[in-house]
Amino acid sequence: MTTLAPPPQKAPPQDVRRKGVTERQRPLWLLTPGGLLMVLIILIPLVLALWISLIDLDQYTLRRWVEAPFIGLGNYVESFSSGLLNSIWISVSFSVLSTIATVPIGIAAALVTQNKYRGRALVRAVFLIPYVLPSFVVATVWRTMLQPDGVVNHWLSQIGIDGGLWLSGPRSYWALVIVEIWAAWPFIYLLSLAALQSVDHEVHEASAVDGATWWPKLRRVILPYLRGPVLLACLLATLNHINNFTLPFVLFGAPAPDDVNVMPMLVYVTSFQSLRFGLSAAMAVLSLVLIAIPLFIYLRAVRLDVHEEGGRR
């Protein structure tokens, strides 16, 4: 329930004239270089991956890979008995948890740096540190901190908590979630901040005139503005979490503890330690399908926006 509707967008005056030109005589051939690149970089590897997932490709057949036996869906069937379902569950739950936890942090950080004050630029810069650090560095530093006799357990013991093992066993899952949250919240923060900046000045003025205090203003005026961008940020962040390989790999190494055997780790071990390229391609294809689901929702959401704008015109 918004008390203030966003102001209607002003349509550019020459819009109608240009529309006719773009729709009829669009110079589509200009897309050829990009299209070719897409075919080369995305389409061909994708088709190859699909093909490899259907053949029994391993170290023994690699050399004559074109002649590797075709086994249909055999690799897909084997994927499910090789712990793929468990890995999917770990990946999805870890990603969703991380996203849910990063949203309030990101929004809060954006609100904190919205108004001008001395040192705001510095705070903004500091907030970005986790985001700009390479994943490898983040993981290495956290791995050192989370050692059984590391800093984290030292601090915990000072407040009377026995930290135990963070990089092995059930707690490794929470270690992964915590480190991912630490590294990923600035993404939500960035998009929320961008959305906050786009709130019209008049809106702030109007709510001031109406005498709205900070909480009703935040809840009923500002947050509705953030809804769209933050939802998109959530989708993108979840996809990023699911695809994150460096973090679990550097934190836990391979073979990973069962509790953090996320999909990218499983595919890595299958591919580069067991050398079952066919099987790992099948796993990768299945994980692509999984990732395609939120992606589909995302694309739909973007398209809906376009339609809305078109409707306004």
Partner: peptide
């Protein structure tokens, strides 16, 4: 992997 998965029990 036997060693990796046994670490929590070892601790």
């Amino acid at each position: 992997n036997v060693a990796v998965q046994s670490l929590p029990d070892l601790s």
